[in-house]
Design a protein around this nucleic acid. Structure first.
Length: 1039
RNA sequence: GCCCAGAUGGCGGAAUUGGUAGACGCGCCAGACUCAAAAUCUGGUAUUCGCAAGGAUGUGCAGGUUCAAUUCCUGUUCUGGGCACCA
């Protein structure tokens, strides 16, 4: 009996499907476990091998937990709204719903082949009305809530209105409305005014924000779509534009999002990233008077008398050498003096064309003096006020006091514009770079002189407060989340505008369906495509749609109760399932999706809709699988001369490809030099060699090209004295084995490659032509080729020179255009789903990024066949027996149980797979075919390779499914050992090994060790200073 | 630029708490079986010196702490991810 995986996998997938074995109920006497994947965006490219990495991990864990007696929720769905579908619609006129449906079908088909244990009856799709109805509903709850800072929770907006009626704005602690108003004021306000005020308090509110505006495309662009200040599509100019936008007041949750990190099992790196994103800082806002200037009288002087800055280092106030305001700062126009006007205007125009990313990342220092001076409140010193793009309007007050001696960016700015630096930290400042220390004793700092900076902070804060020129302040780097998109393919806002007031639709009116459109072009004035629909605009419905992260902020709750038409999720269901116990997905969601979903969860908790306020108990970040692209190097037609090409037409150009090693050689090793010093050294030596003979070697390559041309392409000729030129072309990785090109596949892959010629790694030509044709295998290699061979040997002494074509390799993001995507379907067809699953796990730790490489998959496949052969022989049939297992066999079994159990539990799947291989190897060596042992091995393996295990399980005579087998436990008696082979080191270097009983005492060990022959030899008569004996680890003798 | 992570043989990786560096797999080499191939099996495989026994070196780079460092600390280089409208 052979292991015919195709048959077996089909058989069990069908049976499992028919038996609905993965259905899970919302009640069970078993403890619950919720294992969740970040659901995919169903892109048109389909699933590539990177996607299933996390899914396989969660699938293994879900199956593992089920075997261990849990009621496991393991669902899957689609995050179906998104830009690519809309872009596809724009380009091809296909409705996003249609292309998305297609893509989902394709995804589902691909997923099914891998044999996941998803409960598909719970599938969600964020773009389906029965799902987004509830996204809209939750949005309305946010819209109808405000954040009560006293109670530290979200409360209904009606309660806020009541507060205003009774006590005005000052009795609530909340996001603060300016200016304050009394209860009487409130009652006197018009409805519009009241609503405008309430809007500012809502957790989902409408405001004005800046967007990347591309006039030519008539649309708003994501930062992602802007490259070097122009649109990615078309390369049109992009400027900032102010637009009305919806926001989520996530900043009100900043502290709770920060504190919540202590309650969850995220990696420290992840917590740090989130904490940095939230960016809580303690500092002070300080007012600086602006020195009067004749120009100021000319302009409106309102608000001009002072400039408010935010600083985390008030202690450095005597080191302020200049002020910087953001280009968008509202006071820039009034600060600018007449002589500086042209320069400032020019600068502002420049900044307007810059994306925020560029502004922060650019190493180039830019800025412009406004002409105004601020006055240091403590000593009246005149401080020039500059405007620069490195200060962002959205953070703090949009203005900073620059202290070049203690801040790196301020220092570089001062250097660049020749602003003198005041040193207030004495020897801590070396005059060459800023020192952000907090430990220095302050100098030249008036009343702070001699104080440690650390202590001065409080003193300055007290002083500014008593002077009434400032206040301490907690600030967050995090900004409110922009929640609207000027796009079509997203959830419509359930909002109607009546006389400029945003009104919520009634719950009965949900879902507000996304209407059909004829075109997906943007609407007028930066509005979305919905603004092009008269029936929509005539109802005064909001024309923006919600962003991609709306649906993904709560989808994990919907899985708990996916078909509920009355509620987004019944409280009983969410109480039963509770938090996601294990959430698996990529780090790229570290600060987006994970923060938003955490906020939504906290909000729903505040309003009593769910009973927990952190969605994910434990997070595992899977690494990104990168594509490893392969290149072939085509001799550039330019070498044959443009005239010749024009004469012969472009179609039938000779296709000549040069192998990588020779290309490297032509590059004089530049590429390989990067590989590391040892290789680099080696290469540089080789280069020296090559240089001696270099020109003639290059001539040889040219000769080879000339031979091909003259014999096969007589119309072409090499230009005299031409340099060798070549073009790297991406070659489909599926045509390459490792780095060796499969020439046969390659030439058949494209019409133009049919008559290609290859100069191979050893310098020979394929197909064989010219002089080689006249040689029999016994003839000596002609001089020309032997020279080439020698020359290649000096270049790369480690490599075997062979007659093969070696491709160039580079690691890049997987993408269709780079031909480096690998479709799991092909691998599943060739090796089976079980092999594919195990191979993805065997690649390395789940959380580690790595380039994809298929070449090791054979090993895993071999392992499964080896396992099969413990049960059946290909010709003899059944091997397994019901004999009683020996002690050695049981030792292997129980050691393996312990290892697999522990490794799976700690999500170390790659080492579990290798432990499995060791077990099968050892059982093979022991010729163990005993059911008693094999049956338990199958249970250990079934989470990883469910199909083969189910088949063999039934082969052993079991009637029930292995899915619900009882997980074996490791018995101590087979694991205990009485002695251990200790490594014995002398001065830290291992010199020998000794078998010593595990319960030996220090003294016994010392005696044993020191009497050992080898040890004595190494001691060489000297007496040891110390013998270190670490039980169960090692022994070290210090001489 | 800022934040986070990573770097170990020809390759993917192992070493869970500072304690034998290179488990397991790929590749490669040699052998067995075979008319041959595939499949399978056996042995070898970090580098270097050595016939061998054995020695030296070795976890990106430069230092440090320690009886002992892939692991901890300082600095540094390179690669990957994120940086707010891609998902």
């Amino acid at each position: 009996m052979e292991y015919s995986f195709t048959e077996i996998e089909k058989k069990w997938q069908d049976k499992w499907k028919a038996g609905q074995v993965y259905r899970v109920k919302n009640n069970s006497p078993k403890p619950k476990y919720y294992a969740l994947d970040m659901f995919p965006y169903p892109s048109g490219i389909g699933l590539h091998v990177g996607h299933p990495l996390g899914y396989i991990a969660s699938d293994i864990f879900a199956r593992f937990k089920r075997l261990k007696g849990f009621n496991v929720l393991h669902p899957m769905g689609y995050d179906a709204f998104g830009l690519p579908a809309e872009q596809y619609a724009l380009d091809h006129g296909v409705h996003p719903a249609e292309s998305t449906r297609q893509n989902i079908k394709n995804f589902r088909d691909q997923l099914d082949r891998i044999g996941f244990c998803f409960d598909w009856s719970r599938q969600v799709n964020t773009a389906e009305p029965d799902f987004y109805k509830w996204t809209q509903w939750i949005f309305l709850q946010l819209f109808n809530s405000w954040y009560n800072r006293t109670e530290k929770k979200a409360c209904p907006i009606e309660s806020l209105a009541k507060h205003f009626e009774t006590g005005g704005s000052s009795i609530v602690s909340a996001y603060r409305h300016q200016p304050e108003f009394s209860a009487a004021d409130w009652k006197g306000f018009s409805e519009k005014k009241q609503q405008d005020i309430l809007m500012e308090y809502r957790l989902a509110y409408c405001g004005i924000g800046e967007v990347n505006w591309c006039e030519a495309l008539g649309t708003v662009l994501a930062n992602d779509e802007v490259i070097n200040g122009v649109s990615e599509r078309g390369g049109y100019p992009v400027v900032k534009k102010k637009l009305r936008q919806w926001y989520l007041r996530i900043t009100e949750y900043a502290d709770r999002l920060l504190e919540g990190l202590e309650k969850v099992e995220f990696s420290e790196a992840m917590k740090e990233m989130q904490a940095n994103w939230i960016g809580k800082s303690h500092g002070a806002e300080i007012d600086f008077e602006i020195a009067p200037h004749p120009d100021h009288l000319r302009k409106s002087t309102e608000g001009l008398s002072k400039l408010r800055v935010y600083t985390t280092r008030p202690d450095t106030i005597f080191g302020v050498d200049f002020m910087v305001v953001a280009p968008e700062h509202e006071l820039v126009p009034s600060f600018t003096t007449a002589p500086q006007q042209p320069a400032v205007d020019e600068y502002l125009t420049y900044v307007k064309s810059r994306s925020e990313r560029e502004r922060i990342a650019e190493k180039k220092i830019t800025g412009c003096f406004t002409g105004s001076y601020a006055l240091n409140p403590f000593n009246g010193r005149r401080i020039p006020v500059w405007v620069s793009e490195y200060v962002l309007a959205g953070y703090g007050t949009g203005a900073i006091m620059a202290v070049p001696c203690s801040d790196e960016r301020d220092y570089k700015f001062a250097q660049h514009f020749h602003i003198p630096v005041t040193n207030i930290i004495g020897a801590h400042y070396n005059g060459k770079e800023a020192n952000p220390t907090k430990d220095a004793l302050l100098e030249d700092s008036d009343f702070l002189n001699g104080l440690p900076m650390q202590d001065a902070i409080a003193l300055v804060n007290a002083r500014i407060e008593s002077m009434g020129i400032g206040t301490t302040r907690v600030n967050y780097k995090m900004r409110d989340a922009a929640f609207s998109r000027q796009r079509y393919w997203g959830e419509p806002f359930p909002i109607v505008w009546k006389n400029g007031i945003a009104c919520a639709l009634d719950e009965e009116e949900l879902p507000l369906l996304l209407p059909e459109v004829k075109e997906y072009k943007p609407g007028p004035d930066g509005e979305g495509p919905l603004a092009n629909i008269p029936e929509w605009t005539s109802k005064h419905l909001e024309t923006s749609t919600m962003p991609g992260y709306a649906g993904s902020s709560w989808y994990f709750l919907r899985y708990m109760d996916p078909h509920n038409t009355e509620e987004f999720c019944n409280r009983k269901a969410s109480d039963y399932w509770g938090q996601v116990d294990l959430y698996i997905g990529g780090t790229e969601h570290a600060v987006g999706h994970l923060l938003y979903s955490r906020m939504w969860t906290k909000f729903l908790f505040d309003r009593g809709y769910i009973g927990f306020d952190e969605p994910f108990r434990k997070l595992l970040n899977q690494g990104m699988i990168q594509g490893s692209s392969r290149f072939v190097y085509r001799v550039s037609p330019a070498m044959f001369g443009h005239d010749t090409i024009a004469m012969n037409g472009i179609k039938d150009l000779p296709q000549i490809f040069i192998s990588k090693g020779i290309i490297t050689l032509l590059n004089k090793g530049d590429q390989l030099r990067k590989d590391g010093p040892s290789t680099a050294e080696m290469i540089s030596e080789a280069i020296q060699e090559i240089k001696k003979e270099g020109p003639s070697q290059i001539e040889m390559i040219k000769d080879a090209i000339q031979i091909i041309l003259s014999q096969k392409f007589p119309l072409f000729q090499l230009i005299e004295n031409v340099e060798i030129e070549y073009q790297p072309l991406h070659v489909d990785v599926n045509l390459v084995d490792g780095v060796e090109l499969n020439i046969g596949l390659f030439i058949n892959s494209k019409e133009e490659f049919k008559s290609a010629y290859f100069i191979l790694e050893d310098g020979t030509i394929w197909p064989k032509i010219g002089i080689e044709n006249q040689l029999s295998s016994d003839d000596p290699v002609p001089d020309y080729f032997s020279k080439t061979l020698n020359f290649r040997k000096t270049f790369s002494p480690l490599e075997k020179l062979r007659s093969i074509y070696i491709c160039g390799a580079e690691t890049e993001k997987m993408s269709k255009s780079k031909f480096n995507t690998v479709n799991p379907n092909e691998l599943v067809e060739k090796y089976g789903a079980d092999t594919f699953r195990m191979y993805e796990m065997f690649l390395g730790p789940v959380e580690q990024s790595k380039p994809w490489d298929t070449k090791g998959i054979e090993g895993v496949h071999r392992f499964l066949r080896k396992l099969w052969r413990l049960f059946y022989d290909d010709s003899k049939g059944r091997l397994w027996t019901t004999e009683t297992a020996s002690h050695d066999e049981l030792k292997v079994l129980h050691k393996t149980i312990k290892k697999i159990d522990e490794d799976t539990e700690r999500l170390s799947f790659n080492t579990a797979v290798s432990a499995m291989m060791i077990a099968v190897n050892e059982l093979g060596d022991l010729k163990c075919h005993k059911k008693e042992v094999l049956e338990k091995i199958l249970i250990l393996l079934t989470p990883y390779a469910p199909h083969i295990c189910e088949e063999l399980w039934h082969g052993l005579g079991n009637e029930n499914t292995i899915l619900d087998a009882i997980y074996p436990f490791a018995e101590q008696k087979y694991l205990l050992q009485s002695e251990k082979q200790y490594p014995v080191a002398i001065n830290g270097k291992t010199r020998t090994e000794l078998n010593i009983s595990l319960d030996a005492t220090q003294q016994q060990v010392e005696e044993l060790v020191l009497s050992d022959q080898k040890v004595r030899k190494w001691l060489d008569g000297k007496s040891p200073k110390k013998v270190i004996y670490v039980k169960n680890k090692m022994i070290n003798i210090v001489v």
